[in-house]
Amino acid sequence: MTIPNFEALNVGDEIPSFTTEPVSRLTLALYATGSGDHHPLHLDQDYVRSKGMKDVFAHGMLGMAYLGRLLTQWVPQGAIRSFGVRFTAITWIGESMVCTGKVVEKLEQNGEKCVRLELTCANEQGEAKHKADAVVALA
C-alpha cells in the first residue's frame, strides 16, 4: 500500500468510501465475540423488550471499527496519528453503514506533513451515527 502524496491532496478531497452489509443479529454476535462485549443490549431481544426498547442495537464501537477500516484501506495503519469519534445516534438492525471521509485540513504536526480527515458513519438515509476525525501522516 502506498501512502498518498501530501502535496497532491487538497482540502475537500474525499477518500474512498464504502457501504457495509446491513447490520444483522449475526454481525452483533460476531462483534460480541471479537470485542468481548456481550452486553445484552446488543444480543438479547427479551432483555431489551423488558427495558421498553424495540430491538437490540449495534455496539457503538462497531461503527468506529468500520471507520477504522475506512482509514486503513486508504493508508497503512502506522500512518494514523490520532482517531476520535463522537457517538451521535443508535444503529439499528438492518441498517447499512455508509462510511465516508474527506480532507478538512493540511497541517504540520511534530515535524510531519499530515492531513486531518473528517469521517462519517451514516445510514443510507443520511442520518449520521458517528462523526469522527483523524490525523494521518503522509509522505
Partner: peptide
C-alpha cells in the same frame, strides 16, 4: 484467535 473474530465482525478483508 480473538482478532480473527473481530476482523470477521467488522468486515476486514486484509
Amino acid at each position: 484467535w480473538q482478532l480473527k473474530w473481530f476482523a470477521k465482525a467488522t468486515g476486514e478483508t486484509n
